[in-house]
Computed example of a mutant assay.
Amino acid sequence: MFTIEHDFDATVITLIDEGHEGLMEDITILAFDDCVTLEQIDPMTEEPARITLSMAQLRDLAAALDLPEGSYRIETRPPKG
């Protein structure tokens, strides 16, 4: 399950783990114009763990989900015209 909210400066997506044993803490994704931040509460410390991805890293992650093992570089090309 997930929720989507549009705030003033970010889109907030919350991923909720449900339906099985060994549930993980919710993950909150904050999408800004220039980066995306993932947050999850560490159950041991009750503190949030944060990871911030640039838009290029996010693009690479999305591409990597559909590729086989290997090393890749995504080249961006200027628009034609």
Rank of each mutant, 00 (worst) to 15 (best):
S71Q: 06
L38I: 11
D42E: 07
V36H: 10
E18R: 12
A49C: 08
R50H: 07
E47A: 08
E46P: 00
E18N: 15
T3V: 05
E46M: 15
L15Y: 10
T76Q: 04
D34Q: 14
L15E: 08
T11M: 07
A31V: 15
C35G: 09
D26L: 07
P43M: 11
E75F: 07
A56R: 04
L65G: 14
E39W: 05
A49P: 01
M55D: 00
G81I: 03
E5H: 12
T11H: 04
P79W: 05
M1Q: 10
A56Q: 02
M44H: 13
A63I: 04
S71I: 07
G70N: 02
A10Y: 14
E25C: 04
G81S: 06
E21T: 15
S71Y: 08
A10Q: 11
F2G: 00
M44F: 13
I29N: 03
M44P: 01
I29F: 01
A31E: 06
E5C: 08
A64N: 09
T45F: 10
D33H: 12
A10M: 11
M44N: 13
T3M: 09
L23A: 03
L30Y: 15
L23D: 07
M44E: 15
L61D: 00
P48N: 02
P48M: 01
H6R: 15
L23V: 13
R77W: 02
T52C: 05
I4F: 04
G19E: 05
A62G: 01
G70D: 07
R73W: 04
D60Q: 00
R77E: 07
H6Y: 14
R50K: 09
G22L: 09
E25I: 00
Q40C: 09
P48G: 01
D42V: 00
M55S: 00
T52W: 01
I29R: 03
L38R: 05
M1I: 14
L58S: 04
F2D: 08
L23R: 07
V12M: 11
L38S: 09
M24F: 12
G22F: 09
R73E: 11
